[in-house]
């Protein structure tokens, strides 16, 4: 919808300061569709030249940019091979190169790691990082939450096309965390004394589990426990995983 492929049923949106669907604005946008197909009778070099011409890039710039990108995505040795002879992973790499061709300010990557092996996934992560450092905004759409967790700064949860929540990944890590403490000499009274600082404190087989609003409160809690005579062997703070937050936001009984 932001790229003008589908007409909105209502509402308004802006892309790089222009209304969604604005054609000239797309000159600074890169896009890797999820279920993309290219003209498979082209080779990788021809594909990039074609898309470069559609971006209206000058021939000189294309001559420099195409080998650079083919190198980046590891397709340089296969640049003369027809795309019909490419594997799914190679096509994904060609697609990625196509999305970066115009040094875009905004990049939409729809499931960019699907079909890629671990090396390819690492490559995508590195590329996203490099693009972010260059100053581009990368819009990553993925069901692989671990991927999102590693790569993104901000995350939006969508359900049936509606944004339910937008959060900073950093604030997620800083938000309520679960802590488990392995110690000797823990007692129910100690736990009751903690209740003003933590929530859901439970003592099970010499292990104390609780939730705390912020990591910064931990030293104080540890001091309290030691002061009460507990012998602490291990304190493990565990920020909630994106998956847990996803389930919280979207709901476990979410309709697919």
């Amino acid at each position: 919808m932001l790229l003008g492929l589908v007409a909105p049923t209502g509402g308004r949106a802006w892309v790089l300061g222009h209304p969604a669907g604005n054609v000239p604005a797309r000159a600074k946008v890169g896009f890797l569709p999820e279920h993309f197909r290219f003209h498979e009778w082209l080779n990788a070099e021809e594909l990039l030249r074609l898309h470069g011409r559609l971006y209206r890039m000058p021939a000189g710039q294309l001559r420099r940019r195409i080998p650079e990108l083919l190198d980046l995505v590891g397709l340089a040795p296969h640049r003369k091979k027809r795309l019909s002879d490419y594997s799914k992973g190679m096509l994904q790499r060609a697609g990625l190169a196509q999305a970066l061709l115009n040094e875009p300010d905004l990049i939409f990557l729809d499931e960019p790691t699907s079909g890629l092996d671990p090396v390819g996934r690492l490559l995508v992560r590195d590329i996203i990082k490099a693009e972010r450092q260059r100053g581009a905004t990368v819009f990553l759409n993925s069901h692989l939450l671990s991927e999102v967790e590693i790569t993104c700064d901000r995350v939006a949860f969508l359900k049936r096309g509606e944004v339910l929540s937008v959060r900073d990944i950093g604030s997620l890590i800083e938000s309520e965390i679960r802590v488990s403490v392995k110690a000797d000499g823990l007692s129910a009274a100690m736990v009751a004394g903690l209740n003003s600082h933590v929530s859901e404190a439970q003592l099970e087989e010499g292990q104390l589990n609780f939730r705390v609003a912020s990591k910064s409160e931990l030293p104080q809690i540890i001091r309290y426990l030691v002061g009460q005579g507990a012998q602490i062997f291990e304190v493990t703070p565990r920020p909630p995983s994106l998956e847990e937050i996803f389930l919280q936001v979207i709901g476990k009984d979410s309709v697919l």
């Binding site: 790229l3 797309r26 197909r37 003209h39 559609l54 971006y55």
Partner: peptide
């Protein structure tokens, strides 16, 4: 049908 147009139509072309 094959989604070949997706990458083309998302370019700065009418």
């Amino acid at each position: 049908d094959s989604n070949t147009l997706h990458a083309l139509a998302a370019k700065p072309v009418y």
